[in-house]
């Protein structure tokens, strides 16, 4: 008889395409990998609210302000879906927040770049959310049930984010020369960081092989990046934006674009804390977490008061 609490049995279930649920046996490495990946994903959603939040009061119209507010509310919601999924693995919300604030847990380094002007809001929606969607669509089929269900929910909501960004870029490209230059400038600054969002090449990716074996990741970093490149270049060309890379070529045989080598030194520099906004993003999170402590304490006190009342009348 097989042992249901063995790694071999676990791998058999994975190979059979089964989903793993919170109370099922899982190897410690699987649990650890998931906690790291899901919490990093959750932190990215929450920290990602900051560069856009910066533009709510300066959105150029009421329409764009409403849209931006709704988008940022979604990002907060996505963070919460993901924190919930991570918590099913036995880690508490307080621990997750502590790991973020101490710098132990990472978030997507793209959010360490500033949103300098309104065109950046377009570029973030189109390129950053666009890259995130490619990754998230693939993760809908991840092997861990709660993560997969969260991804399905997120993907339903995320496509509006990308479309609103592309709409901003398309509008600016139909505007004055100055607006066109702004859109191109945002494209130039966000293109490479967006490509880096998929992580290092498969050959240099420390966690990739286990993640693929356990079907946490269903496609590799390079496969996902290529999908994004192939989708995005024609979208840029359609509205007259130039991709900031002189070596782009379409391989007619494969249908894939080839690009220049990515500047990985910059990627590692930003990941290790030396991007333009790393300190600002964490300081902001810590400040509002601490300033909100009294709200959590008051809610807890209110609960205790009512529990006491219920006991007295029972």
């Amino acid at each position: 008889m097989h042992n249901e609490h063995s790694d071999a049995h676990f791998q058999l279930r994975i190979d059979n395409g089964e989903h793993i649920e919170p109370k099922d046996y899982m190897p410690e490495g699987y649990r650890k990998h998931l906690i790291r990946q899901i919490s990093q994903h959750a932190h990215s959603e929450v920290i990602g609210m900051q560069p856009e939040g910066n533009w709510i009061t300066r959105a150029p119209s009421l329409r764009s302000k409403q849209i931006l507010l709704a988008k940022i509310q979604d990002e907060g919601g996505h963070g919460l879906y993901l924190y919930s999924a991570a918590e099913t693995l036995g880690v508490s919300r307080s621990e997750l927040i502590e790991q973020l604030q101490s710098g132990k847990a990472k978030y997507s380094s793209i959010f360490n770049y500033p949103a300098l002007n309104w065109a950046d809001i377009g570029a973030i929606g189109w390129l950053v959310d666009g890259a995130a969607i490619v990754n998230q669509v693939s993760l809908q089929r991840t092997s861990y049930g709660p993560y997969s269900r969260g991804m399905v929910r997120i993907c339903k909501e995320e496509s509006f984010h990308q479309r609103q960004g592309y709409e901003i870029m398309a509008k600016m490209m139909k505007g004055t020369k100055e607006q066109q230059d702004m859109a191109q400038d945002a494209m130039n600054r966000w293109w490479w960081p967006a490509l880096m969002m998929f992580g290092p090449h498969d050959t240099d990716s420390p966690h990739s092989s286990d993640a693929v074996k356990w079907k946490i990741k269903r496609e590799t970093n390079d496969e996902l990046r290529q999908k994004f490149i192939d989708k995005t270049i024609p979208q840029a060309e359609l509205i007259g934006l130039k991709v900031p890379d002189n070596n782009i070529q379409l391989d007619e045989k494969t249908g894939h674009y080839t690009i220049s080598e990515i500047n990985w030194d910059e990627f590692y520099r930003v990941i290790s804390g030396h991007g333009p906004c790393n300190k600002q993003r964490l300081d902001h999170h810590i400040k509002y977490h601490e300033e909100g402590a009294w709200v959590r304490e008051a809610a807890e006190a209110y609960k205790q008061k009512h529990l006491k009342k219920e006991l007295e009348t029972a």
């Binding site: 307080s94 601490e290 959590r296 304490e297 807890e300 609960k303």
Partner: peptide
Amino acid sequence: MATDTQLDLW
């Protein structure tokens, strides 16, 4: 900090 909490899970 006193008793910081992330409240109950539902």
